[in-house]
Amino acid sequence: LKQPRDYMTTFMFIGMIAGAVLGLLVAHPTMNLPVYTGFNNASLGTLFPILFVTVACGAVSGFHSLVSSGTSSKTVSNEKDMLKVGYGAMVLESLLAVLALCVAGAAAAADGTPAAGTPFQVFSNGVAGFFQMFGVPVYVAQCFMTMCVSALALTSLDAVARIGRMSFQELFSVDDMSKAEGWRKLLCNTYFATIITLAGGFVLTRIGYSNIWPLFGSANQLLSALVLVTLCVFLKVTGRSNKMLFPPLIIMLCVTFTALVQRLIALINAYQAGSATFLVEGLQLILAVLLIALGLTIVINSLRAYAAARKNSETSAA
């Protein structure tokens, strides 16, 4: 399902990004949103850590590590190509993030009021306006952008469903599943695991996009930090240099744990004030506690493994 459709939508995305870049260069619109309004924000708090948690995919993203291990690796025939595929995709996504900021700034009113509509609507209408400058009829431009946004949503959703199902199965799988207990076989069944993960996703949708986003960003960046910890251990035992991973690792651990603790305190305060509900704040509180516990467990165990591992031990054993 993913491979043929994603192959076709890739050309749509390239056309969308190319059109947006050319449109920005030709139109050279005025950025109506202010560049900086202060370190503190009335609704978001301080820029640290929310800025780093929000700007995720164009910087360091844990979700992409899951995509690369469970999806991308199965579509690349040569490991040497992963540098171009992985790094190239992140650079292109960073470009898309900058384009989105430019479009949002240009679409705002002259007094700095943000454009009305959802983020997808603002971006789609803005890029469609760029296409119109090249003689593309307005209905064709809007139709094309709607298809691009829909394809992006479908790609994200089925990738998340696949990766969520695989991660759920890995929690209960053993090396020899033919001799596993019946309950393990049930939980690792492809269809049963898919239903469970989709049901969990459906429950989260009831919470609301704006409510779940702070936790999503924190979980995403926490996962990237945990991947960096694991890679440090892997590179050490395989005799490779790993010093370049320590700066982003330390930064991401500080960012994610700060964001999670802040969110945990905010949720506790909401309960004390009597304004919390179980479906919204209650589920977020449970997830925040689980994420903090999970992160601490993996970091501590990984650091112990790193300290105990001997450099180049894997190559020496071979």
Rank of each mutant, 00 (worst) to 15 (best):
L253Y: 02
G208E: 09
T258L: 00
F123T: 09
T37P: 01
F216C: 12
V21E: 08
I250S: 06
R263D: 12
Y87I: 15
A159F: 00
I17G: 03
A266T: 08
K84E: 01
G86V: 04
Y139R: 02
C188I: 06
R240Q: 13
F130R: 01
T46W: 10
E170P: 00
S167G: 01
S241M: 08
L154T: 09
A199M: 14
Y7P: 00
V67P: 03
S69T: 12
G274F: 09
R240E: 14
T30I: 12
V91D: 02
R304S: 09
A180S: 12
G164T: 05
S77I: 01
A115W: 04
V255L: 06
G201F: 05
W183M: 13
Y36L: 08
A141F: 00
A109W: 00
K243D: 11
G117N: 08
M147T: 07
T10W: 11
M90P: 01
P137H: 10
V103K: 03
S302I: 01
M31R: 10
S218L: 07
V60S: 05
P247G: 07
V103P: 06
Y139S: 13
N41W: 03
G295T: 04
N32Y: 10
C188R: 05
D158T: 08
F168Q: 02
L223Q: 03
G135P: 07
S173D: 14
G126E: 08
V261Y: 13
G295D: 05
T146F: 14
A199V: 14
L22I: 15
V160S: 13
T197K: 02
T46F: 12
I50F: 06
F123P: 00
N41A: 09
L267S: 08
G70L: 11
F48L: 12
L152T: 12
V174S: 11
N78C: 05
K74M: 09
F216T: 06
L187V: 03
R206Q: 14
F202G: 02
N242A: 12
M82D: 02
L226K: 04
V229L: 13
S94D: 06
L296G: 14
A307M: 10
E79Q: 11
P29I: 08
A270Y: 05
V255Y: 02
F234M: 12
F192I: 15
L152K: 01
M145D: 03
I300K: 12
G201C: 10
S156M: 06
D111E: 07
H64M: 11
L92C: 13
W183H: 13
G129P: 02
A27F: 08
V203G: 02
Q121W: 02
I207Y: 06
P137D: 08
I250L: 13
M147K: 04
D6L: 09
M177V: 05
F144K: 04
I251D: 03
V261C: 06
F52Q: 02
A307V: 10
A273T: 07
L154D: 07
G135S: 10
S65E: 10
K179G: 06
F278W: 15
R165F: 00
D158A: 07
A116K: 14
A27E: 14
D6I: 04
Y139W: 15
P248L: 03
L152G: 15
A110D: 12
D81I: 03
A107H: 04
T75V: 11
L231S: 11
G126H: 00
A318Y: 14
